[in-house]
Amino acid sequence: METNSLEKEQKINRLLNSQPSGVVYLSSWLTENGFSTQLLNRYKKSNWLYSIGTGAWMRVGEEPGYEGAIYALQQQCDQSIHLGGKTALSLLGKAHYLELSAQQVIVFGGSKEKLPAWFTNYDWGVKVNYFSTSFLPAKVGLQDLERGNFSLKISNPIRALMECLYLAPKKQDLVECYEIMQGLNNLRPNQVYDLLKQCTSIKVKRLFLYMGEKSNHDWFKYMDAEKIDIGKGKRSLVKDGVYIAKYAITVPKALAEYE
């Protein structure tokens, strides 16, 4: 009996140590690795684990953070949910004037991906704004970012700005998007081109190309922008704006006149 108990103790120890500290443990992943709900409840009683909601556990002595929760969704159930938009740009140092310690974070996931109830019900100390969309392919345009004990997949600068443009103008200011674009002077033309080719949002493609050209960046000159399909017909993003004939979009006057 004691040997069996010791073996189980070593088994849970090995499993818990297989994940970095600060990471959430998903019940689905624990079950796949041989730990039944009954066994997990026993570990809870033994003060090894504690529940942060149905389907999610933490090691006793560790506090959960939203980044450790996103890591679990990425690594333990292979989801494309990631930090994106302005949050990713801030973390990458591409939006210095943006409030990094803002009480809001932007998270993107695929059109069929939802944040689980344990995630949405938990108080992370920040407001999590989740956007489920497939205007860009899942897992394309992501990069690794070290976050203490683990590495998190977040949007690279190109994808992050496209995500900002996807949210504009209702949930993201277009002038702010342009200010971010001005700072992205060392992008790789082939990477920009590849992501634009795979983007299905006409609005995002038109705005990205318009802002890239307006910024006069070298990478824009080396990119075959003419081959990007920007659809047909006029798109009015704001009322009483300025019409940009080349890209058939109406943008805010403040953006059109921005030097």
Rank of each mutant, 00 (worst) to 15 (best):
E2D: 14
S5Q: 12
I12D: 14
V23L: 08
Y25V: 05
Y25M: 12
T31D: 09
G34H: 11
T37L: 10
L40I: 10
N41G: 14
Y43C: 05
T54C: 04
E62I: 09
E63K: 13
G68I: 10
Y71M: 12
C77R: 12
I81T: 14
G85N: 11
K86Q: 15
S90E: 11
L91C: 01
K94G: 11
Q104K: 15
I106E: 11
V107G: 07
E113Y: 08
L115R: 05
D123P: 00
W124I: 02
V128H: 03
S134F: 05
F135E: 12
A138N: 14
A138G: 03
K139A: 14
V140L: 14
G148S: 07
K153A: 12
I154P: 06
P169A: 06
E176I: 09
I180A: 05
L184S: 04
P189Y: 14
Q191I: 06
K197H: 01
K205W: 06
M211F: 10
G212A: 14
G212Q: 04
E213H: 01
E213P: 00
K214D: 07
Y222S: 11
A225G: 09
I228M: 05
L237G: 03
D240I: 03
V242M: 08
Y243P: 01
Y247P: 00
K253G: 02
L255K: 04
Y258C: 05
